[in-house]
């Protein structure tokens, strides 16, 4: 089954000279880990927000697990999607446990179930519940905050996770660790992941397939191996070339 289907989707913001997304079509299968790669301003965030309808498309159709997102209740759609953003967006006046329990509370789970699930989730993202659940976000490091953000997004076991540069503000060591843990999580849960990044190494490391955006259009959508072996003319080729340059820079020191 297809988790996400875009059919000729276009989006232009009011007053903008050109479309943020232009006639974009693609499908993501259930269980895939797809990374969305491209430079700043190419439309990655727009693509993600069209899926959970923080933005509405001007034209085209977006299907989520076969269902047109326009047809269903907005709030219900969102509660079934795990959403993680670079700014993390933890609620500063709530404890870690309360943050993680956000969607379960919206869905009116009973208290014991919420408590058990919160502990389970914190352990899953590598935070000892007893030590962390009563802390406030300001009492955590950036990496720990994003772990809580991840736990919060996983709370009601959504079938699909949308992640918008979630590790963009983290140091490279923490980022590497979280990347590996995310891959493990994907292997264990079989959830569908759509992961936005502007970092080519991150995109190629995490993605089973990589969707490369350039100026609101899909430049190439394929496995990392296929892209490296046969990069599309123009933008993708120069992207791969610049990554190679960077590799050579480090090799000089080996």
């Amino acid at each position: 089954m297809n988790a996400v289907t875009f059919q000729n989707v276009s989006k232009r913001f009011k007053g903008a000279g050109r479309s943020a997304l232009e006639n974009v079509s693609f499908t993501v299968e259930e269980g895939e880990f797809v990374t969305v790669l491209g430079p700043s301003g190419c439309g990655k965030t727009t693509l993600l927000k069209l899926i959970n309808r923080l933005y509405e498309p001007d034209s085209g159709q977006i299907l989520l697990f076969g269902e047109d997102t326009q047809g269903v209740d907005l709030v219900k759609v969102r509660r079934g999607i795990g959403y993680v953003i670079q700014q993390i967006g933890l609620f500063p006046h709530w404890t870690v446990a309360e943050n993680v329990a956000t969607v379960p509370k919206l869905l009116k789970w009973d208290r014991d179930r919420i408590r058990a699930r919160t502990d389970e989730l914190l352990r899953l993202v590598g935070l000892e519940p007893e030590e962390y659940k009563n802390r406030y976000p300001s009492q955590l490091s950036g990496g720990q905050q994003q772990r809580v953000g991840l736990a919060r997004a996983l709370a009601v076991d959504p079938k699909i996770m949308l992640m918008d540069e979630p590790f963009g503000a983290l140091d490279s060591i923490t980022r590497g660790k979280l990347q590996q843990e995310l891959l493990a999580l994907h292997r264990e849960t079989g959830k569908t992941f759509l992961f936005v990044t502007h970092d080519i190494e991150e995109a190629f490391l995490l993605g089973g397939r990589v969707l490369i955006l350039d100026g609101g259009k899909i430049a190439q959508f394929d496995t990392p191996e296929a892209i490296i072996r046969r990069p599309a003319e123009g933008f993708v080729r120069s992207l791969v070339e610049s990554a190679r340059e960077k590799g050579r820079f480090w090799e000089a020191y080996l």
Partner: peptide
């Protein structure tokens, strides 16, 4: 944005 995205 996080709050809206989670379906509040």
């Amino acid at each position: 944005e996080a709050a809206m995205g989670m379906g509040m």
